[in-house]
């Protein structure tokens, strides 16, 4: 069964594009990454799935339920962590956790206590006095404490120190092993590469790639680095060019023959052609063609 499915999902804010014709499918039990730069439409997609905004056209379903008409049933099975976790003034951590549990009509005290322990979060602290990272922990516990079937996490690790990040992903893995679907929106591609099985890349409101992380990482583009000099001007398929004191590094997505001809004509003392990592694939999808 699909945990999330969207068909031609479109959202315009007046004349401004949010997302356009988005076809997305996330299987139940998946650990899914959602990649895109600021303004690409990630938040619009998430907010539409959660019923915070209404789509202009198209449809979106979570566990087969329509986000427009069965919002409450969907939210009962979904835990959401916003990119910036903000709470009401004057509240203590335990008040926020208890409010969240009450709104879900669940007794989550045991789960909340365990999560607080693992994330090193003091429930007696006032939220106003917490750092950004600690507020994020409160958001994480709120999202996870009810054992939801689906977790939608928007930039979840911002502000968390590496140890807590590690513990957080351990918790997510445990939940995922037990069947929880994780939908992780992130800029941090190493997170996606390390933890997600499948991922989608969104650009300017449109889905431009959706596949397993392994398949996304496999691309015709190569990272080419050399020491020396070669004339590359006008060569099509060059991206992310970095010039160093004694050489050049770039992402190359064009034909190999013209590249080799240029390199052969130059003075090259060392050459490396490697498979790009996910970060570079991301650039491959996003960067405009450079002349």
């Amino acid at each position: 069964m699909e945990a999330i499915v969207t068909r031609k999902l479109t959202k315009y804010y007046g004349k401004m594009r949010g997302i356009s014709g988005l076809d997305l499918s996330v299987e139940e039990g998946d650990f899914f990454g959602f990649i895109g730069p600021n303004g690409a439409g990630k938040s619009t997609t998430i907010r539409t799935l959660l019923g915070l905004i209404s789509p202009t056209s198209g449809e979106a379903k979570i566990f087969g339920k329509d986000v427009r008409t069965e919002k409450n049933a969907i939210l009962a099975e979904t835990g959401y962590l916003p990119s910036e976790a903000l709470f009401y003034p004057g509240m203590r951590v335990r008040d926020a956790l208890s409010l969240s549990a009450d709104l879900r009509r669940k007794d989550c005290s045991a789960g909340a206590a365990q999560l607080c322990r693992r994330l090193d979060l003091d429930p007696s602290r006032k939220i106003d006095e917490l750092s950004f990272g600690n507020r994020k922990k409160v958001g994480i516990v709120c999202a996870l404490q009810g054992d939801p079937k689906l977790l939608i996490l928007d930039e979840p690790t911002g502000g968390l120190d590496p140890l807590i990040q590690h513990e957080f992903f351990e918790i997510l893995k445990e939940r995922n092993t037990k069947g929880t679907t994780v939908f992780l929106s992130s800029h941090v591609l190493s997170e996606i590469r390390r933890h997600c099985r499948r991922a989608a890349v969104i650009r300017e409101g449109e889905l431009i790639a959706c596949d397993s992380v392994d398949a996304l990482s496999r691309t015709n583009a190569r990272r080419v680095s050399f020491r020396g000099q070669a004339e590359l001007e006008g060569l099509p398929g060059l991206k992310d060019i970095t010039r160093t004191a004694d050489g050049v590094s770039f992402l190359y997505g064009g034909e190999m023959k013209p590249l080799l001809e240029r390199l052969a004509a130059g003075e090259i003392s060392d050459l490396a052609v490697t498979e790009p990592d996910l970060e570079e694939v991301f650039l491959h999808y996003y960067q405009k063609e450079e002349a």
Binding site: L50, G51, L52, T78, E84, L86, P89, L103, R104
Partner: peptide
């Protein structure tokens, strides 16, 4: 106060 993201995402 951006608390809508908290309140309105509960069932």
């Amino acid at each position: 106060g951006h608390t809508a993201d908290f309140l309105l995402t509960h069932p």
